[in-house]
């Protein structure tokens, strides 16, 4: 009895507040927009019994999805999200790898402190960390002031409200997600392997490329997924740093819902976004499981 209650409580919570809402999204994505409250049609009328359900189902169609393919905005936004997520994942890897490597090679007694220094920004507000770049990247901002002062440039560069600002923002905020799996992979690395490689005539770079890098593969894969997947649906960073010219699907969904009030199209955008993410999510799960098996 008690066991059943223990299972039912979290189970029914998740069904009511995760699964059912999701089914509602799918349903509304197949509905039509209407000038009503709620602003879509048809509504399921259970009081009409079986006939009501049949009427309801017959009114559902894929018009919203067809609409997404006809309007440039949407597929451009999907492609642009894909591009931004790929480039910034790669950039985050390039920034995080030396940092994680340095941490793994640091003296043992430093490591807990270094770990804490990486995790600390993760606990402080995401929104504030994105916002902190606004004052740095603005035309009259600190970066431009510095570059002009050291005479690298004469005119301030336009960085804020461009894709570059979005890349910087993403790399900055998602860096801990990349550093932590890399660090845990690099930390386990046996230093004697490197010594062996050098004894056998490798240069230090060759030893890194032939030994360290392949052995940190799992960390690289995990880190890339942990950055790529959430960045695909990112809204805050393009909204604050990207200006109007940076197109990302999370932002399109938000505007479709809050500004255009087109709920069926917003739901269709959400369904497609999720379908795009299913592949990387499944690959990520499989990688994690393989790793767990390898360790266990």
């Amino acid at each position: 009895m008690k066991r059943a209650a223990l299972i039912l409580l979290p189970y029914s919570w998740l069904i009511a507040l995760f699964l059912v809402p999701f089914l509602i999204v799918i349903k509304i994505s197949l509905s039509d927009i209407a000038l009503a409250i709620p602003p879509y049609t048809p509504n399921l009328d259970l009081s009409a019994g079986w006939q009501g359900i049949k009427d309801f189902v017959s009114q559902l169609d894929f018009d919203n999805f067809k609409f997404l393919t006809t309007d440039d905005l949407y597929w451009k936004a999907y492609l642009s999200s894909l591009k931004i997520a790929s480039i910034s994942t790669f950039a985050a890897l390039c920034v995080a790898y030396p940092l994680a490597y340095g941490m793994a090679r640091a003296p043992d007694e430093w490591r807990p402190t270094l770990m804490m220094l990486v995790i600390l920004p993760f606990w402080s507000s995401f929104l504030i960390r994105v916002y902190s770049w606004k004052a740095i990247l603005a035309n009259e901002g600190l970066l431009n002031q510095l570059l002009i002062a050291i005479r690298v440039i004469d005119e301030p560069l336009q960085i804020l409200n461009t894709p570059t600002a979005v890349y910087i923002g993403i790399v900055y905020t998602y860096l801990p997600f990349m550093v932590l799996p890399l660090y845990s992979a690099l930390e386990k690395l046996d230093a004697s392997l490197l010594e062996a490689a050098e004894d056998l005539g490798c240069t230090r770079f060759q030893a890194f490329w032939l030994v360290t890098f392949p052995l940190s593969r799992n960390g690289i894969i995990a880190g890339c997924f942990l950055v790529f997947i959430p960045v695909m649906g990112e809204f805050v960073i393009p909204a604050l740093l990207g200006g109007s010219q940076t197109l990302m699907i999370g932002k399109v969904l938000w505007e479709e819902f809050f500004s255009n009030r087109d709920w069926p199209v917003a739901s269709a955008v959400a369904v497609i976004l999720l379908l795009l993410l299913v592949i990387p999510i499944v690959l990520f799960q499989r990688n994690e499981e393989k790793q767990r098996e390898a360790e266990g």
Binding site: P21, I229, M232, G233, A270, I281
Partner: peptide, 11 residues
């Protein structure tokens, strides 16, 4: 792993 915008919209 789900984007916040989807969770928010569905809720």
């Amino acid at each position: 792993v789900m984007p916040d915008v989807i969770l928010g919209l569905s809720l």
